[in-house]
């Protein structure tokens, strides 16, 4: 199984500037790819396209040879850069955590998620604490591919090491593919097998 992108074009509505032009990419299950590139080069946009959060203007995204499902659970899951923007502010944390599956206690403990955070509102947690929920909620068995868009910059280095170790364990255990968007070269080297610079495969020039 693999995630393929064929000749993706994308621009935001009502603008004429292409963010992505003719971007193609293939990542197999079990493979770990670092996606790098300067700020504003379209890394987050590509991540959103690959996970079905945005629709491309042209080109296709295929998972296991088929387009991503429009309905139901998407096997390709995205963890976004800003956790405070990716949770429903009117849902308590316990509900947010169980949106797609029910993580077991052992996982929560490894993630450093405290039992008493469950009854809090998102606004009552720090960015790093929120991000742990955003990560834990997509590590379920239905996720087959994980895209991590700058997920650890708001975490302290000890928690970073802790969470990356856990994500790597889960990816190996469940045979997940992984795309990691990061600006930290040391982290990319630690976590990934290979790296791609988006500016090298993107025909759009800023």
């Amino acid at each position: 199984m693999r995630l393929e992108a064929h000749h993706l074009d994308f621009r935001y509505p009502k603008t004429d500037k292409w963010i992505l032009k003719d971007v193609s990419l293939t990542v197999g299950a079990g493979e770990r790819l670092a996606l790098v590139g300067p700020s504003g080069s379209g890394k987050s946009t590509l991540s959103a396209l690959l996970s079905g959060c945005l629709a491309a203007d042209a080109g296709t995204v295929l998972w296991d040879g088929k387009p991503l499902p429009v309905k139901g659970y998407c096997p390709v899951q995205l963890i976004r850069q800003h956790p405070e923007l990716s949770v429903n502010p009117r849902r308590k944390m316990g509900k947010i955590l169980c949106e797609s599956w029910t993580p077991d206690k052992a996982l929560l403990e490894k993630m450093g998620i405290e039992e008493r955070w469950m009854t809090r509102w998102p606004a009552e947690l720090s960015g790093g604490e929120l991000q742990r929920f955003c990560i834990a909620r997509v590590l379920g068995p239905r996720t087959k591919f994980l895209i991590c868009d700058e997920i650890s910059t708001m975490l302290d280095v000890i928690t970073q090491a802790q969470i990356w170790r856990l994500i790597l364990d889960v990816t190996v255990q469940n045979g997940l593919g992984l795309i990691v968007v990061t600006h930290n070269p040391a982290l990319a080297k630690r976590v990934c097998d290979r790296a791609i610079d988006l500016t090298d495969i993107n025909a759009a020039r800023p």
Partner: peptide
């Protein structure tokens, strides 16, 4: 421990978690 957890220095996490404010 912070120093040892850097990706370029070992990437070693530390067991346990920070005490809760309560």
């Amino acid at each position: 421990a912070l120093f040892d957890a850097l990706p370029q220095n070992g990437f070693r996490p530390l067991a346990g978690s920070q005490p809760y404010a309560g």
